[in-house]
Write a protein that binds this DNA or RNA. Structure first.
Lengths: 236, 236
DNA sequence: TATTATAATTGTACCGGTACAATTAATCAA
DNA sequence: TTGATTAATTGTACCGGTACAATTATAATA
């Protein structure tokens, strides 16, 4: 692990272990430099990471302070780094509805930057959070990048398989949010009424080299889904 | 303007003006250093900024590439920097329903970190995008931080007033998303049917020193609202 | 030709330095 | 005591350097 990542983890763990409140002042830069025995720029990088993660905020001329949002039970839509930890509070499971190799539709081919003749893995799952239906998910994977999937992999975390077994690195993603109403089929899987509201999310995941490998369309149960974003600046 | 911000703007403008496609390779670091006549770390900061903004992505050992999402008409939920420009494509107006000084409810006081005896400005607006109803918004401002508001200010951009006239600087924000159904009152303002789906967003905006000054509850018209997020890493 | 080893390219990590701007604390004047 | 001035504190901007890791291009080998 890189130095600045390790330091960021250490500081975050310190905040958690000591249950520091919002606004608590952390040691000044010079002290942190002495404590961790690294250069200023390395500490700065670690702190910038924590700031983007929403753990701290820095005020020039004043100090470094703990930032903590209080509400529990929200799924973070923005995983600027090490997001997996946020999910440990949830018990996430899934049931596989379909798993097969297909030819992409035009929509899928466009989003995955593929030809219509190439193959995609199609995965349809119902996902549960703490035992309750969370969402119905349809995912398409570029088979030339993800050459093999089976029920065991899909049942577990596909992303873990991609990084651990295939050695691929996930980079950035584009996420599109809509609100809509549940179709009859979706309502059935989610155990809700047809026409009830849903949060509909389309995501395109890319490798670090920019190649899109996963296009997913997810309908969330509106009763279960609460999401959280951390941002900088105004909405409008 | 800071050097690295100016360079980031220049590079982004170059990409826009030349309509560079996704994946186009930009000049290598050394060339950029020579072009802009600054040190390596300044260029790196500018590029990191653009990467977080979603304008480029960098691949170590390979190069710097243009990243561009194609879909138009989406409101970016994440304004990592200079987000206002993204909104120029929309025609945003608003109609003021209420504007008054109030005592905060417990919920408002909690989110704004205030006492129940202090005053808040309460602003209720219907907001329009390209002439169509976009959302119904209720905002609460800490009056000790935002001492004066009138119809003219509220009609325009409150955030512009805060930064330009009051000289305050907006820092981070926490955003909570829910899906729900419209109440009768909301449906009336949004010209939709009671019980129709809505995207419900609560936001808390902070100054750079961490003080919360604005708590807003917004119900979005599901027919009009399409949102966009850029992230790094997986959802789950 | 296909595969493997090697070299060149290129972005990132990390160092330690100076200057500066924003905030806060201390000092002084009224 | 209050308000303004000054000084100390503290994070950020910017510099330029070495080393290294990931990728890509080239050369060597089978």
């Amino acid at each position: 692990m890189l130095k600045y990542q390790q330091i960021a983890n250490d500081i975050e763990k310190y905040i958690e272990d000591h249950a520091l409140q919002q606004g608590t002042k952390l040691p000044v830069l010079e002290t942190l430099i002495a404590q961790f025995q690294v250069s200023k720029s390395t500490i700065t990088k670690a702190l910038d990471l924590l700031e983007r993660k929403g753990v701290i905020f820095q005020v020039r001329g004043s100090g470094i302070f703990v930032r903590r949002h209080k509400r529990k039970g929200y799924i973070s839509l923005l995983s600027n780094q090490g997001f997996a930890r946020d999910l440990e509070e949830f018990d996430l499971t899934s049931e596989i509805i379909e798993l097969e190799v297909k030819k992409p539709t035009e929509e899928v081919a466009l989003n995955l930057n593929m030809n219509l003749e190439e193959d995609v893995y199609y995965v349809k799952r119902v996902r549960f959070m703490n035992g309750k239906t969370l969402c119905l998910e349809e995912s398409f994977y570029n088979k030339s990048l993800i050459p093999y999937l089976n029920h065991e992999i899909v049942k577990d975390s596909i992303f873990n398989y991609i990084s651990d077994a295939l050695g691929l690195k996930v980079g950035f993603s584009d996420i599109y949010l809509h609100v809509g109403t549940l179709t009859e089929e979706e309502a059935g899987f989610l155990q809700l009424k047809t026409g009830a509201p849903k949060l509909y999310v389309e995501s395109i995941f890319h490798l670090t080299n920019g190649q899109p490998f996963d296009f997913s369309k997810v309908s969330y149960n509106y009763e279960q889904s609460q999401f959280f974003i951390q941002a900088n600046g105004q909405l409008f």
